[in-house]
């Protein structure tokens, strides 16, 4: 077999970045700013689970676009299958635009562990963006978290859990609206959540949520 050409290697290092995804990044910057503020950590290629409050359809794109391109290429936003994977333009954008990983929210449609694709991605070294509230809320502060993040954290004790607060996006595109209002939104990255051995699920989820609230 031939040696990997340097250009090929670069292609492998950035599997997800298409022209479409660069266009998106520009569009998101103009519309909602999505200015990153690295408060508690620096951008780094280590295995990370970014978790954020969820108020708008733009959240996924805004958080993803706030990452530098090199990290964007190894970070996959987890998107609800019932919204993003319904075929047509939306599914195309999700797959080719921001390399989404679909998760099934509907209990009836699930086969096996819904977290399985997420675990596989983490195992292959890809970072994730998740919204542990499970759905969008029309408020500044996040609601209680669902337990998915706890299971991911337990199975991957070395992954860094980065709390992220998305500011203003619920004003830009509230639930039920289709056009985003241009606003300057910031994306605040906090310090990795400390791991405490033998912590109960409830305590962990509350602590994780509090880390996001502290950034608000």
């Amino acid at each position: 077999m031939r040696d990997t050409h340097p250009r090929d290697r670069r292609a492998i290092a950035r599997p997800g970045l298409t022209v479409l995804s660069y266009l998106f990044a520009v569009l998101v910057r103009v519309l909602v700013g999505a200015r990153p503020q690295w408060i508690g950590c620096k951008p780094a290629p280590s295995l990370r689970i970014y978790y954020a409050n969820h108020t708008s359809h733009l959240d996924t794109l805004a958080l993803w676009c706030a990452l530098p391109p090199s990290l964007r290429a190894i970070t996959r936003p987890v998107a609800a299958s019932d919204y993003w994977n319904r075929g047509g333009i939306r599914a195309y954008i999700a797959t080719h635009g921001f390399n989404a990983l679909f998760i099934e929210r509907d209990k009836d449609k699930r086969e096996g562990d819904p977290l399985e694709p997420l675990l596989q991605a983490l195992a292959s070294g890809q970072s994730l963006i998740i919204f542990p509230e499970g759905t969008r809320r029309a408020q500044a502060l996040p609601s209680p978290f669902k337990s998915g993040i706890f299971h991911l954290a337990t199975k991957f004790p070395d992954a860094e859990l980065i709390p992220v607060y998305l500011d203003n996006l619920y004003r830009s595109m509230p639930k039920g609206t289709f056009l985003p209002v241009p606003l300057t939104c910031s994306v605040r990255f906090g310090a990795p959540l400390a791991r405490i051995a033998d912590e109960t699920k409830e305590l962990f989820l509350e602590r994780a949520r509090q880390a996001v609230v502290d950034l608000a």
Partner: peptide, 27 residues
């Protein structure tokens, strides 16, 4: 103007009911 209006609206408190007038202003 777009950027200036964006800054102005960002600093001004708005409510979900302002979405339509805001969209009309910008677009």
């Amino acid at each position: 103007s777009l950027f200036a209006l964006r800054e102005f609206v960002t600093l001004t408190p708005t409510r979900p009911g302002d979405h339509l007038p805001l969209v009309v202003c910008f677009y």
